Amino acid sequence: MLSNQSQLLARNLDLFEQGEWLIINPADAYFTDQLSDMPLEVLHQYFDVFSESVRVIHSHSMDTRDVSEDPSGFCVSQKVSKHLHTFAPFITGERRFSDVLIYIPKAKHQLKMLLTMAGSVLREGGRIHLVGENKGGIKSAAKLATDLGPAQKVDSARHCSLITIEVENTPVFRLEDWLDERTYQVDEFEWDIVSLPGVFSHTELDDGTRLLLSKLPNHLNGNILDFACGAGVIGSYLNKLQPHLKLTLLDVSALALFCAARTMQANGVTGQLLAANGLHGVDDKFSHIVTNPPFHTGVKTDYSITKRFISDAKRVLAKDGTLHLVANRFLPYPGLLAEHFSQVRPLAQTSQFSVYLSLK
């Protein structure tokens, strides 16, 4: 099914008739089917749409050392017809494009980073196109690109807008300009976090994760899964405190996995990275899952993510395994957890968050 953004683009297929195109972060796996006769490249920073685009079911894994030492990060490519789909945090290779289309993210600072990255791979006289939902930030997106060149609205429909920027000032993309490195603290314990715009826990430790970490047992054993790891805050905390643990850090975002690898490196610990759409295609067994899971699709609350994760969490937990989870209090986790786990205990609660322990 075409997203609203892609339905708007489908009204403007003549825009794609000429040039060499790169599409960044399409909101669905189906719009490119309408461009099947033209060669193009697609950069996916999110594994869910990538896997659907290339019909891949299973997750992809890599050691944290391999990602942290390679600026291209976690990179998987697959050709589908005339289209090259790549799952990676950044644009790789030396190819230059006449046009780059960005499906805008909800975080403005992430969009600014994507604009700089897109502009750096344009040919002279190239264009950047932005498509997004009106309430998702597209109306202010053109203001972020004023240093690149003039922008104009091309079309609007389905509560979305399409904007084209004629790039006159080609930027240089330097990763170090966007990386944020700082020290987080819980009680007396300190550890280092490396993050990028658009990655959960960027620039600060959120209160929910802080509460979760303060309630974790001091002695865990076996294989630990940091689900929706973001910048690797939970996994690096656990592994630095308990070096004997075998850590797996999972996220749908290539940017998050890249940051998690850098975070683990900064703390002198290692683990396994896993790119996956939730727990779909994950067959490993874990002794414990620790998570501050997402509950949004774009700007909308999406309970289907919660339901699917809880069901799959029980499947991948070993016998007598545990799930430690923090969530906003308004989310219906207690009832959903009780449907799948034999015991569910609240460990802590604030006016905003609750921490739950579930036993298989």
Rank of each mutant, 00 (worst) to 15 (best):
M1F: 12
N4L: 05
Q7T: 04
Q7Y: 07
L8F: 06
E20K: 13
E20R: 14
I23L: 15
A27L: 09
F31E: 03
T32D: 12
D33L: 13
Q34E: 12
D37A: 15
M38S: 15
Q45P: 00
Y46A: 11
V49K: 09
F50M: 03
F50I: 01
S51F: 03
E52G: 11
H60P: 01
M62T: 04
T64D: 06
D66R: 13
D66C: 10
V67F: 04
E69K: 14
F74I: 06
F74G: 03
C75G: 04
Q78S: 11
V80Q: 15
K82M: 12
K82A: 13
H83A: 12
L84A: 09
T86Q: 06
T86N: 03
A88E: 01
A88M: 01
F90S: 01
R95M: 11
R95C: 08
F97K: 09
V100K: 00
K106F: 10
K108S: 13
Q110Y: 12
K112Q: 15
M113N: 00
M117I: 02
G119W: 14
S120A: 15
L122N: 02
V131W: 03
G136F: 07
K143N: 15
L148P: 06
G149T: 05
Q152A: 14
S156P: 03
I165W: 10
T183P: 05
Y184W: 14
Y184F: 15
Q185R: 15
Q185V: 12
D192S: 14
I193T: 12
V194M: 11
V194G: 08
G208Q: 07
G208S: 08
T209E: 05
H219M: 10
L225S: 00
L225W: 00
I234G: 08
G235D: 02
S236R: 03
Y237K: 06
L247C: 04
A254T: 02
A256M: 01
C259W: 03
A260H: 05
T270D: 14
T270Q: 13
Q272H: 10
Q272Y: 01
L274G: 03
G281T: 05
G281C: 05
D283Q: 13
D283K: 10
D284E: 13
V290P: 03
P294H: 12
H296Y: 15
T297E: 14
T301F: 08
T301H: 09
S304T: 14
I305V: 14
I305C: 09
F309R: 02
D312P: 04
D312C: 05
A313G: 02
K314Y: 04
L317N: 02
D320G: 06
D320Y: 09
H324R: 04
H324N: 10
H324Q: 07
L325S: 08
V326I: 03
R329F: 06
L331C: 07
L331G: 05
P334R: 11
L336D: 11
L337T: 02
V344P: 02
L347W: 09
S351F: 10
Q352T: 14
V355D: 04
L359R: 09
K360P: 08
